[in-house]
């Protein structure tokens, strides 16, 4: 520590004694990305205040936060398609955060939201005013909950395909199944993949 001529460098006993800083232990400088500064400061403040909570988490647990900067739009995947569009301000923070769109929507271009009216599917957990996530690109297989245009009106039911007969099954004992006949106008509009229900 002392140079050849015996000048400068480390002098024993000089400076603050080890462990007497605000944390009461040895510290080490590190580089921190600006975006994480608030969280890290918070952890340090909590630690300083004597809280041990933050360190009692199981090892290897990932801290995941909902993306508070996520875009506020219906099916937001399209907003990035326009060549001249604004880059999302959230793009830089996308890693490791949870996006409900990613969880609920597999085919954004073919996914539509539909509002529920009526009680016919109540036992399937589909209640009035809920929002259905409807994927038009999926195969409306036997047993799927679908949205169909029946004589021009959209309706949500479970589809049954047996022996070539299509039947729309309600999930409520007060309603009768609807057998689709040749005279009816019937178009399958899309397959319901999720129900969004606010409590």
């Amino acid at each position: 520590m002392v140079n050849k001529r015996g000048h400068g460098g480390h002098r024993p006993g000089a400076g603050r004694p080890e462990g007497t800083g605000k944390f009461g232990e040895k510290t080490k400088p590190i580089r921190v990305p600006n975006s994480l500064l608030p969280q890290i400061t918070e952890i340090l403040d909590a630690h300083k205040a004597g809280s041990k909570k933050i360190f009692m988490m199981p090892q290897n647990a990932e801290i995941m936060l909902p993306d508070e900067n996520a875009e506020h739009s219906g099916v937001p995947f399209f907003s990035n398609m326009v060549a001249a569009g604004f880059p999302s301000p959230a793009d830089d923070h996308m890693d490791d955060r949870l996006d409900l769109n990613e969880y609920l929507v597999s085919h954004p271009a073919a996914t539509f939201f539909v509002r529920v009216q009526g009680l016919s599917m109540i036992n399937a957990g589909i209640q009035p005013d809920d929002i259905l996530v409807v994927d038009r690109s999926m195969d409306p297989a036997h047993g799927k909950v679908i949205v169909a245009a029946l004589d021009g009106d959209l309706t949500v039911k479970r589809i049954s395909k047996q022996n070539g007969q299509i039947t729309l099954m309600p999930e409520n004992d007060d309603y009768d199944p609807i057998e689709i006949t040749a005279e009816m106008s019937f178009i399958i509009w899309g397959v319901v993949t999720s129900v969004i229900h606010k409590v």
């Binding site: 739009s73 539509f112 009526g118």
Partner: peptide, 14 residues
């Protein structure tokens, strides 16, 4: 605005 406003979504009934 069926696809761009929450309060104007298409409706599916009974």
């Amino acid at each position: 605005a069926y696809t761009t406003k929450w309060d104007e979504l298409p409706k599916a009934g009974d």
